[in-house]
């Protein structure tokens, strides 16, 4: 009993590590699966980072569409990244995290574009911010926002498309 109490923090640490690794991994896989599915679903909605609209004659209706997500890393990734910073180099655990966030934000933007009835989003900008504030153990949480202008040809009696 004393042994357990003495090393409680060690057990807790490894417990969290294992929990973070297993659940975090499972959640990441599930998220990637859903991202891939939705990317296929919204493949018809095109998103471009071009600033100027394509040369079209028909008047277009446009609307700002945006998608955002706040994502946090799991305990395991946090520890691994912390160790990795000692020697520097590629932090692949965080790379996948931000990749997921960015794709998720883009997908949400496309979802909104579809609701508007558009199939084209231009001038897409992707931005990320830390929302953790570096409190306590410094929760590494990132907010990623993707926004752009959705264009759809205007349907009106004067312009016979």
């Amino acid at each position: 009993m004393d042994f357990i109490l003495n090393f409680l923090d060690v057990f807790l640490f490894f417990g969290l590590l294992v929990l973070g690794f297993s659940v975090g991994r499972w959640k990441e896989r599930r998220h990637y699966k859903s991202i891939r599915e939705r990317e296929a679903k919204y493949a018809n909605i095109l998103a471009f980072a071009v600033r100027y609209p394509p040369d079209v004659v028909t008047p277009q209706d446009c609307q700002l569409v945006a998608g955002s997500v706040v994502i946090s890393s799991d305990y395991f990734k946090q520890i691994v990244a912390g160790l990795r910073t000692l020697i520097g180099g590629k932090l692949s655990s965080y790379e996948s995290l931000l990749d997921r966030a960015r794709r998720e934000a883009t997908l949400r933007m496309k979802e909104q574009a579809q609701r508007f009835g558009a199939t084209l989003v231009i001038n897409v900008k992707v931005e990320s911010t830390t929302v953790s504030g570096g409190t306590r153990r410094g929760l590494p949480a990132m907010e990623v926002i993707a926004y752009g202008t959705a264009l759809k040809p205007r349907v009106s009696p004067t312009t016979q498309a």
Partner: peptide, 8 residues
């Protein structure tokens, strides 16, 4: 939530 990660 930060222990297991994912969207907040």
């Amino acid at each position: 939530k930060n222990i297991v990660g994912g969207e907040l």
